[in-house]
Write a protein that binds this DNA or RNA. Structure first.
Length: 588
RNA sequence: GCCCUUGUAGCUCAGUUGGCAGAGCACAUCCUUGGUAAGGAUGAGGUCACCGGUUCAAUCCCGGUCAAGGGCUCCA
């Protein structure tokens, strides 16, 4: 089964790669002065880069696509031909393709050089390809953008044309449906429609305004987070948003992280810096409060808001912002406790994230990067501790070589949402660098001075980003326990308002997030509106309900149950509307 | 930051080949008191992102700035 999957995958790669060549062939035919860059298959399709005197327009794309289809109809055989270096150089200099010549120069001496020909088009390429342009059953061009030659900013800017190709029209249609689905779920669109958040834009790009409804969701998340962290032995702390630049020099952030930090601000001749991370403050708290091994491990947690300078072009809704709140914690422990502490974090990750209904989870262990600090022994010890924790917790994982942070290795956990997309949420990072920089010590059981190890960890990653992910995952329809408005009570006519208002008041006093819609509108109108706001439950009140102290219920999904006694409805709601940790306790 | 595209009412979007700015929804007032996704009427609402230039006249043409969208790169 696995082998079949991988065969299918590699044949799709060849198909898309051939589609990319076909794209280049079509562009060269319609725009003979265009020069070709590279054109690989990607995860979801393919692209090809061109240098041309003007940008390609959507109309150009249509013409190019129909030209591609005629190339496909012509069924040109795709022929592989090994060539000598001098032959290749002569060929592409004759064609006036400087980028291809540059690629040839980059091919090692001993490597074979091959070209692939289809009709009048020839491309430097190592393959593989499908046998004929006729073997591309379904292809579509999607968008254009710019990209630097070889992805280097100082290089010329090329125009990239994106497309995708599939084994069948049906597969292509399914893919296009998925794209539509992604657009429907876009958290920026839903965030606006549902009044969840706004970005400051002209008043501050990359900064988030949490509107009341979004703030309510955040509050529920944060309350639950704090409850779980209390239960797991963390101590909650608050730290400032700025500190003197010296702190960031001592921590090493100024050396290693300066490009992502806002510029320092001068006050009374002293430089202050906006915090990009919470860790140095937690370290200062450690120094204030720990002296003995008996105090360890100490777990300091904070929903700490940090500010990082992100280049303007990279900002994106809630997913990439300049001010965000980390669900942060730092665990300081004895070296021998490291693996144990990591296992505890893994368990907490599952307990916290497990309730959101993500499909599954993949775990990556990232090892030492090129740019890093610390001794080989420390890196080996920390990496081993992460491995042994994963193995003891029976968590399967993949190695991500060189993707660790500069101060230590890390575990990254990705979760798959309702439509299968993977999001990196939780991260667990071992750090032996900061404890040294700040000379953290404690007395061990033998009375010796020892150095603690530090673990940085976050479950959500950033609250802003996690909220964005949740909006897309749930398509704005938050589950009852998380919904900003849980119940909307609606009056049928004005004479029902006193009963309905009393019902809302009762629910509010029980800490249910209930609102009333008593406007002078027909019930159909109110229901439509509540549906559009994705309120999970609608409670409808008319003559029959008032007379018998009942309510009629309708859920967001359209299920109805009429004339439920109020006591039953309220009791049932209380049992469902809160996380299990708070069951039976309306005042978390 | 760079390339391309875009910026008109609270929202979604028309529009003017340069001559007083338009719709739907939302909002306000009134009529209607209606049983599970839109009852009706009236009204208010805009420095056409911002700054400058060309012109008798600029929302429209030109330049710049800011921001958003799609990418490159980077990442929570």
């Amino acid at each position: 089964m696995k082998q079949q999957d991988s065969q299918k995958h590699s044949s799709l790669v060849a198909l898309r790669h051939s589609a990319a060549h076909t794209l280049a062939q079509a562009v060269k035919k319609l725009f003979p002065t265009a020069q070709v860059g590279v054109g690989p298959a990607t995860e979801e399709g393919f692209y090809y880069d061109f240098r041309y005197e003007r940008p390609f327009t959507p109309e150009d794309l249509e013409r190019i696509e129909s030209e591609m289809k005629s190339v496909i109809r012509a069924s040109f055989p795709i022929v592989r031909r090994p060539v000598s270096r001098s032959e290749a150089t002569a060929l592409f200099s004759g064609l006036g393709e400087p980028f291809k010549l540059e690629l040839i120069q980059g091919i090692p001496d001993e490597a074979e050089i091959t070209v692939y020909e289809q009709g009048e088009f020839v491309d430097l390429c190592r393959g593989p390809h499908v046998p004929s342009t006729g073997d591309i059953p379904a292809v579509k061009l999607l968008s254009t953008s710019s990209a630097y030659w070889k992805g280097i900013e100082s290089n010329p800017s090329l125009q990239r044309i994106y497309g995708t190709a599939f084994e069948s029209e049906g597969d292509l249609d399914a893919y296009l449906k998925q794209l539509e689905e992604i657009q429907k779920r876009d958290h920026r669109k839903l965030g606006k429609e549902l009044d969840l958040f706004r970005t400051l834009d002209e008043k501050g790009a990359g900064l988030v305004l949490w509107l009341p409804k979004g703030s309510q969701v955040r509050r529920t998340l944060e309350d639950l987070w704090k409850t779980l962290h209390d239960q797991h032995g963390y101590r909650y702390v608050y730290t400032p948003h700025i500190a003197r630049l010296d702190l960031w020099k001592q921590s090493g952030h100024w050396d290693y992280y300066r490009d992502s930090m806002f510029k320092p601000m001068e006050t009374e001749g002293t430089s202050y810096e906006l915090k990009p991370m919470n860790c140095p403050f937690h370290i200062l708290i450690f120094k204030e409060s720990v002296q003995s091994y008996r105090d360890l491990p100490i777990r300091l947690s904070e929903l700490g808001t940090v500010y990082r300078y992100e280049r303007s072009g990279t900002l994106h809704g809630l997913m990439r912002v300049r001010g965000f709140t980390q669900d942060d914690a730092h665990i300081f422990c004895k070296p021998e406790d490291l693996s144990d502490e990591i296992q505890k974090v893994l368990a907490l990750v599952d307990q916290m994230i497990g309730r959101f209904g993500f499909q599954d989870r993949t775990v990556f262990l990232s090892t030492r990067p090129d740019k890093s600090v610390g001794s080989d022994e420390n890196w080996a010890m920390a990496t081993d501790a992460l491995k042994s924790a994963l193995e003891q917790a029976n968590v399967p994982y993949e190695i991500d070589p060189g993707e660790g942070v500069f101060y230590g290795p890390k575990i990254d956990i990705k979760f798959h949402d309702a439509i299968g997309r993977a999001w990196q949420l939780s991260t667990i990072q071992v750090d032996f660098n900061l404890p040294e920089k700040f000379d953290l010590t404690y007395r061990n059981a033998k009375g010796e001075v020892a150095r603690p190890i530090m673990i940085h960890r976050a479950l959500f990653g950033s609250i802003e980003r996690f909220f964005g992910i949740l909006i897309e995952h749930y398509m704005g329809a938050f589950p009852l326990w998380l919904a900003p408005e849980q119940v909307r009570v609606m009056s049928l006519a004005d004479r029902h308002i006193p009963y309905a208002q009393a019902l809302v008041d009762r629910l509010k006093s029980l800490r249910v997030r209930a609102e009333g819609d008593f406007r002078n509108e027909k019930i159909g109108f109110k229901i439509r509106e509540a549906q559009l706001w994705k309120v999970p439950e609608m409670w409808i009140v008319g003559d029959r309900e008032v007379q018998e102290n009942r309510v009629s219920l309708r859920t967001r999904e359209g299920e109805k149950s009429d004339l439920i006694p109020q006591e039953t409805a309220v009791g049932d709601l209380l049992a469902r509307c809160r996380p299990a940790e708070w069951a039976g306790n309306p005042w978390p």
